[in-house]
């Protein structure tokens, strides 16, 4: 992390991961996976623009990385079995 002038690289090169940027705060609706309906086709994983559908290994049910999920709802729309519902975030 560059906090002072002295820490700046000599030219503007960036190499620090974006993972600590919590884009989950953008979200107004969140995906909820119903494992009873899920057939583990991983369409949701495939189409997630934010890489926020996590499947640890083949055969696992998908989980949602809520730190980064922006709540676009693509996973819900693409799920062939309607296993992902978008739920309103409650403050």
């Amino acid at each position: 992390m560059h906090r002072t002038y002295k820490d700046l690289p000599s030219e503007p090169v960036a190499m620090q991961s974006t993972e600590d940027i919590i884009t989950g705060t953008w979200r107004s609706i969140r995906p909820v996976v119903n494992e009873d309906k899920c057939i583990r086709c991983y369409m949701c994983w495939k189409y997630c623009p934010d890489m926020s559908i996590i499947v640890e290994k083949e055969g696992d049910y998908p989980t949602v990385d809520l730190d980064h999920c922006k709540g676009c709802g693509i996973c819900s729309n693409e799920c062939p079995r309607g296993a992902i519902k978008m739920q309103r975030e409650v403050l």
Partner: peptide, 15 residues
């Protein structure tokens, strides 16, 4: 590619 990028929700470009 890591999450935390700045694309709008539902944007096709990061995909």
């Amino acid at each position: 590619m890591t999450p935390g990028h700045s694309a709008c929700p539902g944007c096709g470009e990061p995909l």
